[in-house]
Nucleic acid binder design. Structure first.
Lengths: 200, 200
DNA sequence: GGCGAAATCTATAGAACTATAGAAAAATTG
DNA sequence: CAATTTTTCTATAGTTCTATAGATTTCGCC
């Protein structure tokens, strides 16, 4: 398996090209020719970088989620209050969508087309991410910031879902103000639509 | 164009079969043979029901979103407080995912593969839905239930995103308790994680 | 039971796609 | 610059897919 930390520059370019094409056309809608075209090489030549089209998808997905999870690991370990950690999580999630060249989007929308074998690593990373998020909410409850009736598992899925939804919008509309979206997501999750009557 | 109100039973079955296959394999990953197999007919015979594979996708998407929007229209016109309307919206959204045989999921994840021409109707319906949702939030603000600082457009996108995320989970896990998810989404959106100190 | 319409079948043309093999070119190294 | 390694190219085998045409069967109805 490929470790995105050890990518040679050319392999890195190949993963980015594949990510971009998969993000635009979907895994099945994209052809190996499309990826080759994006790299400026011939169709057959991409098999120098990927053992198969399926492996290309696996590499893109792994690249998309890998250091994204380790970033979450750092946030979770840090010594900040709940609100700051939540904000950091959302920020990491949404900025990833813009910066990581659509690989995270590919991970989220196309990874299920991989056979189970090739999803093992991805699944572990995804579970780890969700677990850290759940622990974050449990911390929030323990600290008295989050209502004790909040279901941590539900909350984690919701945050992931909300961030992915905004991530898709961000990828589709390059003019969208990411930091505005981050702040509003943070505010909505913390306070809801009604909000606490803090300012009363 | 096809109007889902006027579907003959057999055409209806065809749309459901196509929806199911597209939801499972994606538009490009699914073949006309897959759809035919699901209906128990030969590959070439599906062209009796659809002019082309692309038209099949268009029909599925339209079926998926059509009365779903008109349901929202009814909710919006009704004479209920903001909270009830929000709950009705979420309920309609999430139960659609389970009942409409995955056509709504196909609409959400595959419609962008249609050429612009065939998306005109879908786009109009989607915009209408978002607009009704925005007006709902503006009503909430006017009624003093929703904080005036809430951005109605942002809120609408967020509700749609959150519901779609849970919809995907619902489709993927048939054992999931839909009404539990509905209540928790409603609560999270209204009160956020911190919640109002109602019960203090 | 026979007629017209609806539904399905068979067979296939034509296009696109994946993956491989071996040659060729480019880059790197001693 | 010669040897070696890395990268790319050409050509193609083999498969799969969409869509069509025309034959065939099933169905509703008088």
């Amino acid at each position: 398996m490929l470790d995105s930390k050890n990518l040679k520059p050319k392999q890195h370019r190949a993963v980015l090209a594949a990510a971009s094409v998969f993000a635009e056309k979907g895994y099945h809608g994209a052809s190996t020719r499309d990826i080759a075209d994006r790299m400026g090489i011939q169709q057959g030549s991409i098999y120098y970088y990927f053992k198969s089209k399926e492996d290309a998808l696996a590499d893109v997905c792994l690249f998309g989620i890998e250091d994204y999870v380790s970033h979450m690991e750092t946030t979770a370990m840090s010594d900040q209050p709940f609100e700051s950690k939540l904000l950091a999580t959302i920020t990491s999630h949404l900025t990833s969508y813009r910066e990581r060249n659509e690989a995270l989007k590919v991970h989220n929308s196309e990874r299920l087309y991989l056979p189970k074998k090739k999803r093992t690593r991805l699944k572990a990373l995804g579970s780890r991410y969700r677990q850290l998020l759940e622990e974050l909410f449990e911390q929030g409850i323990a600290d008295g910031v989050v209502r004790p009736t909040v279901d941590a598992h539900f909350a984690a899925q919701s945050v992931i879902g909300l961030c992915n939804a905004w991530g898709d919008l961000i990828v589709r509309d390059p003019g969208l103000d990411v930091f505005d979206a981050i702040q509003k997501c943070h505010d909505l999750l913390l306070n809801g639509l009604r909000g606490r009557p803090d300012t009363d």
